[in-house]
Amino acid sequence: MLPLLLLLLRGRKSKKRTILLTGVSEAGKTALFSKLVYGKELESYTSIKENSGFYSVASKKLDIPIVDIPGNDRQRLQFWEKFKNEVRGIVFMVDSSKFQKDVKEVAELLFVLLTDPAIHGLKLALLVACNKQDITMSKSAKVIQTQLEKELNTLRVTRAASLDSTDSSGQMNRYFLGKEGKNFEFSQLSPIKVDFVECVCKSTGDRKADIRVVEEWIQKIA
């Protein structure tokens, strides 16, 4: 009985407050995490476990739990499943310098996250952080937004036509992204609010790391 109570208490405490850092591999999730939580830039490799820590907002006297989940394709959905029920906001990291190459993968991940039944109808905040703006060839947030919209538009058609799964439990929950009959736009996602920002998580040479916009966003939604 007692452990059950404890579990309940603990469960309630951490519920729906977490900011989840997600995105494909090598987008800069762990870099952003170390900048937010430890306040400095740390070297990092491919994560095989989540990082979790707290970001303190001085003005509101709050400690916001931040979880950085692995972005490699074998694990990202597994960890998403694990943390999706505690999410208050999602920071979706995009590597702007490699966006052209990764666009399908990025869009597909975003599609899976957005169509997950666990977040339907929730008042979530989604921040698409276009990282690595210091690299010359990187795409701007505006370009990334339009390209993602276009890609998601295609994806919702092809995904709707994908086969049933072998599970005998029957139909997959097919949620249609956006408004039917219209081209997809992020604004159709309400009540999920989507923002696009540009940031730099690692200083290179004279260009300093700049994640102020991300911090502002977190403070706003906290």
Binding site: T30, F33, S34, L42, E43, S44, Y45, T46, S47, I48, K49, E50, N51, D68, P70
Partner: peptide
């Protein structure tokens, strides 16, 4: 190199 499973390098 020594790093956490989360990928953060502690020392190298």
């Amino acid at each position: 190199t020594i790093f956490s499973k989360g990928g953060i390098v502690l020392w190298y």
